[in-house]
Computed example of a mutant assay.
Amino acid sequence: MLTETCVSNLTCFCCHLALNITAVQQYLETLHKHNGDAVDNSVETVEESLAGTDTEENGGGGCLKLFTNWPLMSAITLYCIFSLQDVAYAETFSLWAVSDRSFGGLSFTTTDVGNVLAMSGLFLFLYQMLIYPFLAKTVDHITLVRAVALLTLPVLASYPFFPSLSGFGLMVVVNCASFLKNTFSVTTITVFNILMNEAVTQDVRAAANGIAVTLMSISKAVAPAVAGIIFSWAQRRQTAAFLPGDHLVFFILNIFTFIGFVFTFRPFFVRGSAKH
């Protein structure tokens, strides 16, 4: 048990490390995409730049101006929606997997759940290191988010039908579904980190990321309570005619996904194009 716990923790650590490395790489690319421009490093230019920045911040309300930056705020809103859905799924998955089959669960042991999450983390690490950088360079960021959101819908909709499987086939299907769902979530979160940084200039990126992380943390704090309420409600609907049992849980998760997908279009989402 101790070995399995260590492997799971190590896999999660590697997964988060890969996410951070990929996000930093993409951030540096956006930061230096004008490398061909000439740079004047004279003292006079630096002083003028600093003076202009101070004047703009003092006259424009500083960080408060960020709340009027709609490309930034729309990206943060979508970031929060997908983060809430991701955490709600993570909370629901374990509860659903260990539930008895009579309640629509998989009757997994905690070891089985740990093995699924460990395998998902391992493949997610490989995806972040080998596949995502290629996708980020060949597919437009917001198009990638839309594609991922659409692919998430059938994946989540298939979960309530997993209890009809058993044995090795069940483990393969659950591992594949878990990997796909986590891959979609990490892709979305990484993309919105990039879009938020593209929406502001370099001198206010720290403040913008602070606002984004604060609002995202609030969303993630609410998500477990929301997931618990929905899961408890679903357990009392095992014989309902419409969306019985866990069908309700994954349907509501898909609602959040669909809302996020719709909000990626105009007029809600506006792509930022701040000069760096």
Rank of each mutant, 00 (worst) to 15 (best):
M1T: 14
T5Y: 15
L10Y: 06
C14M: 14
C15H: 13
N20V: 06
A23Q: 14
Q25H: 10
Y27I: 08
Y27C: 08
V39L: 13
T45M: 10
T45K: 11
E48N: 11
N58G: 07
N58Q: 15
G59V: 07
G62D: 07
F67S: 04
N69C: 06
L84Q: 00
L84M: 08
D86S: 11
D86F: 10
A88L: 06
F93W: 08
L95C: 04
V98I: 14
V98A: 02
D100L: 11
D100N: 14
G105H: 05
G105T: 10
F108H: 07
T109S: 15
T111L: 11
G114H: 06
A118K: 03
M119Q: 11
F123P: 01
Y127L: 00
Q128K: 06
I131D: 01
F134V: 15
A136P: 00
L144G: 07
A149T: 00
P160K: 12
L165V: 03
M171S: 11
V172K: 04
A177N: 08
L180F: 09
N182V: 06
S185D: 02
F192M: 11
N193T: 00
N197C: 05
A199Q: 08
D203Y: 08
V204R: 11
R205V: 02
R205D: 01
A207N: 06
A207F: 02
N209Y: 00
V213H: 01
L215H: 00
M216G: 08
K220Y: 04
V222N: 04
V222F: 00
P224G: 10
V226T: 06
I229N: 09
I230D: 06
I230C: 12
R236K: 15
T239E: 09
V249R: 09
F251E: 02
L253P: 00
N254W: 01
F256D: 02
I259M: 00
V262F: 05
S273D: 12
